[in-house]
Each structure stands twice: as structure tokens, then as C-alpha cells.
Design a protein around this nucleic acid. Structure first.
Lengths: 345, 345
DNA sequence: TTGAAAGCGGTACCAA
DNA sequence: TTGGTACCGCTTTCAA
């Protein structure tokens, strides 16, 4: 009746009830051939006892846990859930469970997370680096590659060779700004995340590159860096808006910054896109319905997670060998209504 | 130099290098008293070897994994990340890691998740039930309480006694609708999640209760149920809006439904709140900046996760005993601009 | 094919 | 206090 009455007996109990040796039970459970009648008896015993193998014991013996660690800055940032989902879905299809750790945008906590993953003996690691203090990673506990822990980095590249899945940030940013240029904007500001992560550097470079290619001046006075929070995005934008002449378009390099930018624009009583255009980062369904409908660069978040997990799994199974791979996924420009023609001066 | 060169020797290696027995090394590592010089030598060996205890082995022997399973419908629904964070933060402070599983709103997958948690021998379970097919939970693998797996439910109550952390959905919904009434609305529609989960039932009941207490008619023609997706929220709302006379206010019982409702309203060319008011569910920072600024009921998501984890941890440690506890947390009505006076007919 | 037995890396009991 | 050792539950030789 019940699947787990009394103390769990383990495989020993199954073997006894089936009248076979532990070895035979184990073999059956692992899909190896056993004599037909034994097969039936073991199967029956398993069912009756509601037996589920103890993965802790399996892990100890097999020296693999079929478990993946995933370290992310903060699940509360809406970009991450989709990549986590991508990871989880593909990991689970392969029988792997994932342990999720939030580093809290903090380099030292990130190191602690790494220690947990190591201590748990996860077979592999999916890592999205923290924006602040990522350099800490180079201290003890060591970086993944020093731990010889198979790992793939997501979204942002570490400063050593490693498997990596990232979006084409520079290209996408450049395209976004080029679009602004094509709309007639000449003073294009940038509210950039203050971070030494490659993601953010690349986005900023994409912005500058677009300016350059368009023959527009460097305009450092229209660029400002901010910690990637709504509040800091707001004040950074307020600064920019105070300039005279002020920019007619703004590019924000992260989700929270985008919210901050829009908020500051509204506070200033500016109409978007009539008086000022903006293109932000990361795309969500609510943006299709709330105003101003903000134009953004959308990242293939789910896919990034899925591809990263696939690569890691392939590495673990030995299906894939060779030098570190770098997978570049395409972002796409989602044009909504916050980007319009430059106002005539 | 390196923390993990060559094959890991384990505690055995530490003991050897320190010139003590394995037992002594183990004792030291577990904070028990050992003779002072041994203490120093072991500490040095640990450092030099970069030794980190193998939690798999510890778990097998101690029969506890210091690991929590957490099953949620879909991390991609923005309500969940905050509760996950609450869980993770408090779990980690207590030395617990959390394994995150998405049930995908699907009852049978939810059962599989449960099997994984069981197989992994997680010490406890945090469960947010899936909206669809939750009844499946009563099949094999059994429900948590049948597995004798300590667990606390979050957000929605199972149909048996269990530790539980939930928001005061009925009260909050009633308050929201009462507010609409106080604004002069009489035809108040409800776009309710089609689900037998207690969360959703309670919200709907809160709505009806407010109507009743206000002496307003039942108006079933203004109520519609929809699967909790943006698309279904949209079409359900479209239906409601086609009625004549149409409702002057709408209450949506979930986040995605709220988006769908706003979208349908806009498609109909209705101005909100001038022509129609709405109060939705779940509060996010972007709602303060994008229009219409939607009024919603905000749940204490992070706190729900944190309290649930606390309770579970207390249960595991034996600090807390006794009958199932039911923790009720307060939601709050966030009035923004989508709720205004009823239009004069 | 099958069963006995040796571990996997720790913990904890027991005698010294 | 310390060291020797059985054991946690399962996998995997190895010999029969």
C-alpha cells in the first residue's frame, strides 16, 4: 500500500525480499541482464517497497553526483530566471539536478558558493559571474579551472580560456545605436553599467563603435557609468539630462538601468520618444503593453542556459573534448515605441 | 601553492600529513577538542592541501545531507524568484544548499521532482504546488508527508495538514475590491485563475465576499476564469469587455492575468482608469514607471520564502516540534493609477 | 550469470 | 584525549 512504511531498507531490503543477492538487485537496477525470474522478483520488490536508490550512496561509490552547481548573481534580476530554466530543463532531461547559489553580486560570496559546489562534489558548474569584485575569484577557494571542476561560463567571459556561452553584446549594442543614428540622433547618451565584466564592456564598446562608424564625435559628456540598480540608473540619467544641449537619445546597458532611465525621463517631464528616445536592455512581455513601450535588446536567455548546460553535459560525458569552446548567441533588437526620430532642434 | 594539485587525498591525506590519526583529524574538523599541537598540524595540513570535506561522504554517514529541495512551478514567473531568494539566503546562513526543481505547472512532473528530492535524500522540502493537476501529488511517488519528508508548503495549502506559509489572499483581495467599491464601482469584474489551488480560490472568494458585504449583486456575468497566462488573460478580458453594460472595474488574480487584462483594455481602446479601473496582482518596480501605473496587491515574496525556510530548518533541528504550523503573512495593496473613480453613466 | 567482498570518504563508537 | 575500526548504501571487481 504505502511506498515507504517503516525504515527504508535500501537495496539490501529489495534483495532480501526478492530472494537474490545484493549484486543481482544492483545489476537489475542498473539495467544489466539478470536471469528472467530474478528480474521479475526484483521488480516486484522494488514496487512493493517503493524503493528509490539512495543517490548519496551512489555518488560516493561512483564518484559522481549527477548534480550541477549553478552560481548566479541574483535570481531576483529578471534576466536570470530564464537562463536558470534553460539550464534546469536540459540538466533534468539528462538526469542531473541543479543546486542554485546566489552570489549576491558579491565577489567574496561568490567564492563561498564555489566552495559549496566543490564540497558538494557537483560534477560541473554553470557560472554567471558577479558584477562587483569578480577579481576575488582568483583567490582561494580557487577559480573553477584551478579546482579542475568542469565548468561553463554564461553571459560574461572570465579572463582565462574557458567554455563559454554568451550573447553578441557588442554587435547588438552597435546595432541598437546605429538604429538611433539612422533615426537622426546625433547626441546619443549611454548609461552604462559600472562593472569590469566583459558583458558590460562589450556593450559599451558596441555603443562607441557605432558612434565612431557613424562619424559622430566621442561625446564623453553624454556617457555615464552607474551601478546596475534602478536608483543609480535614475540619478545617472538625471545627470545626463541636465547637460545642455542634452542628448536626444539614450542607450542603457542593463535591465535595471533601463528602468531607472525611463523613470528619470518621466521625472524630467520629457516625452518619450517625442523629445527623447531610448533603447534599453532585456525584453519582457509586459513591455508590449505598458507605456512607453520600450525598445530593447533582447537576449536569448533560455537558450543561453540550455546551450551552456548541453555543453557542460557533453564535456562531462566525454562526448565532447578539445579546447574551450565559445558559443556566441544572437541577441535581437526589439523595436517598440521608445525609439523615434530625433526632435528637430 | 595550488589548493588541489593531484588526486584529492581526503581526510586520510590530511591525517597523514599532520601525523595524526584519521579520527583526530575528523574531530578537529568537527570542532571538537584535540591536543593543541595536533590542532596546529592538522590546520596546517588542511590549508596546504586545500582540503574541503566531501559532503557526499559526510551525508552518507550522518544520514543527512544538509540540503533542501525546493519545487516550484516555474522560476520564469516573476513572483517566484523572490521567494526562492528568501529560501536560499536563509538556508545558506544555516549551511544548507538548495536544489531547485521546476515542475512546469504540471502535476506529473511535480511528482517526478518529488522523487528526485527523495532520491537525493534532501533533508527537507519547500513546496509551491503547481496550478494544474496538483491532485497527481496524491499518487506515487507519494506526497511529502507520506514520504515522511519534512516539508513546508508555500503560497498554497495542500488538502491535508502541513506546515504552511501563505499570504492573506482572501483578505487582500477583499480589501482591493472594497477599494474599488469605495471608488463608486458597482459592476466589478473578476478575471480569475482557473485553478483549484487554495491561493486562487481564496482570492476569488475575497472578491465575492467584498461584493456581498457591499450589498452588490453576485454578477456572475462579470466573472471569468482563465488559465494563468497572458494570452488567456487577454481573451478572457476581451469577453468581459464585450458585455453590455460592461464592468467599470476589473480585478485580476495573478500576475500574468494582470498583464493580459491591461493588454485587452488597451486593445479595446479603453482608457484606464478614466473608463475602466483595474487592480492586479504582484508588485514590481517597473510598475512605478510604466503606464498605466497599475495598482496591485503585493505579496511579501521574499519573506514568504525566508519564513518557510526558517520553519523548515527549525523542524529539522528539532528546535520546533508540535502540530503543523500555519504562518499567514500580510499582503499589501499598492495603489497606483489604474484604479480611479467609476465613470459616471 | 551470480554472490561475496572490497571499498567510496567520512563519522563515531569503543577500548586503551 | 587518542587511534582502530565498523559502518553508511551502493557499485564493481573477482572467483565460482
Amino acid at each position: 500500500m504505502s511506498g515507504s512504511r517503516g525504515r527504508a531498507l535500501g537495496i539490501r531490503g529489495v534483495a532480501e525480499k526478492a530472494g537474490v543477492s545484493i549484486s543481482t538487485a544492483s545489476r537489475y537496477l542498473n539495467g544489466k541482464r539478470v536471469r528472467p525470474d530474478a528480474e521479475k522478483r526484483v521488480a516486484a520488490a522494488v514496487l512493493e517497497l517503493g524503493y528509490l536508490p539512495n543517490r548519496v550512496a551512489q555518488s560516493l561509490r561512483r564518484r559522481r553526483t549527477t548534480t550541477l552547481g549553478m552560481i548566479i548573481p541574483d535570481i531576483t534580476n529578471p534576466f536570470f530566471p530564464a537562463v536558470v530554466k534553460g539550464v534546469e530543463d536540459t540538466a533534468r532531461s539528462a538526469g542531473f539536478a541543479v543546486v542554485l547559489l546566489n552570489s549576491g553580486d558579491d565577489g567574496v560570496r561568490e567564492s563561498e558558493c564555489l566552495a559549496v559546489v566543490h564540497s558538494l562534489r557537483c560534477d560541473g558548474l554553470l557560472m554567471i559571474m558577479a558584477p562587483l569584485g569578480a577579481h576575488q575569484l582568483r583567490r582561494r577557494p580557487a577559480a573553477p579551472h584551478e579546482l579542475k571542476l568542469p565548468g561553463v561560463y554564461i553571459a560574461t567571459a572570465p579572463d582565462f580560456e574557458a567554455d563559454l556561452v554568451m550573447a553578441d553584446d557588442a554587435r547588438a549594442a552597435e546595432q541598437a545605436v546605429r538604429h538611433l543614428v539612422s533615426l537622426g540622433h546625433e547626441r546619443i547618451g549611454c548609461v552604462a553599467a559600472e562593472s569590469d565584466l566583459s558583458v558590460h564592456r562589450n556593450r559599451f564598446e558596441g555603443y562607441r563603435s557605432a558612434l565612431r562608424k557613424a562619424g559622430l564625435p566621442e561625446q564623453p559628456e553624454n556617457q555615464v557609468r552607474a551601478r546596475p540598480t534602478v536608483a543609480d540608473g535614475y540619478s545617472a540619467t538625471a545627470q545626463l539630462l541636465a547637460r545642455s544641449p542634452r542628448p536626444t537619445a539614450l542607450f542603457a546597458t542593463s535591465y535595471r538601468l533601463t528602468i531607472g532611465v525611463m523613470s528619470a525621463i518621466e521625472s524630467d517631464g520629457l516625452r518619450c520618444p517625442e523629445q527623447i528616445s531610448v533603447i534599453g536592455y532585456d525584453s519582457y512581455d509586459w513591455q508590449d503593453v505598458f507605456h512607453p513601450r520600450v525598445s530593447v535588446i533582447g537576449q536569448p536567455a533560455y537558450l543561453m542556459g540550455a546551450r551552456a548546460a548541453e555543453l557542460l553535459l557533453a564535456r562531462l560525458s566525454g562526448r565532447k573534448t578539445g579546447p574551450p569552446e565559445r558559443i556566441l548567441l544572437q541577441s535581437n533588437l526589439v523595436l517598440r515605441e521608445s525609439s523615434g526620430p530625433a526632435p528637430r532642434s
